[in-house]
């Protein structure tokens, strides 16, 4: 464990808490893409299958349970409890266009052709594009509540910090995983234009308005 990975995991937990608080407090999931939340739940389900078979550390297991539980709770709140506030019209990204390519790619490019490894690889590829329905929805609505933009900033920062963690691990432990690094770079790049808008607008108290 290093400071970059710890900061990244905390940013990740922070993003999930912001989202759950936003939905719970406002009793609304307006502006949130349910499809992205379904993809995130799928990412954790396919990545943390080893929760019961491989014990890495208490921290590792607690965080996995936290991510699985929170993503399940978010999907439940969006599609069941506050389904009336779910903006189905603007959440129109075709997620099969993400699921199929990630599945095919994970069958072609992986470290080892076993069920667990291919599912882990699928989850890594899927996570890198899971935010697309959310970014697509923000671009369609042309704006995002500031709480949603804080959520996106924390979520984008998590994988950006993981990139630093991988640099650190390569230098210090000469450990690296090209699949995770490649997907992490793609994932972080997808947030770049949002990061720019967030820093130039939201931090100055303006609303996040995308150029129409």
């Amino acid at each position: 464990m290093n400071i970059f990975r710890l900061a990244g995991d905390l940013a990740h937990v922070f993003a999930i808490i912001i989202l759950l608080l936003k939905i719970w407090k406002t009793r609304s999931c307006a502006g949130i893409s349910g499809k992205s939340q379904i993809l995130f739940a799928l990412v954790y389900l396919t990545r943390y299958l080893d929760l019961f078979t491989t014990y890495v550390s208490l921290y590792n297991s607690v965080m996995k349970v936290l991510f699985l539980a929170s993503s399940g709770a978010t999907v439940y709140l969006m599609y069941v409890k506050f389904r009336a506030t779910y903006d189905r019209n603007h959440d129109s990204f075709r997620i099969e266009f993400l699921l199929v390519p990630c599945l095919l790619l994970s069958l072609l490019i992986n470290h080892e052709f076993t069920v667990m490894e291919v599912l882990w690889t699928f989850s890594i590829y899927l996570e890198s594009v899971a935010i697309l329905p959310q970014l697509f929805m923000v671009s369609k609505t042309g704006e995002a509540e500031s709480i949603t933009s804080h959520y996106l900033f924390a979520l984008g920062s998590y994988r950006a910090l993981y990139l630093l963690n991988w640099v650190y691990r390569y230098i210090v432990e000469s450990h690296y995983d090209l699949i995770a690094i490649f997907a992490g770079i793609v994932q972080t790049i997808l947030y770049c234009d949002f990061f720019y808008l967030y820093i130039t607008k939201v931090l100055k108290g303006k609303k996040l308005q995308l150029p129409a």
Binding site: H12, V56, N60, E117, Y162
Partner: peptide
């Protein structure tokens, strides 16, 4: 790598 390499990252 041989057996399912232990993933220590989240």
């Amino acid at each position: 790598p041989g057996e399912y390499s232990k993933k220590d990252e989240l």
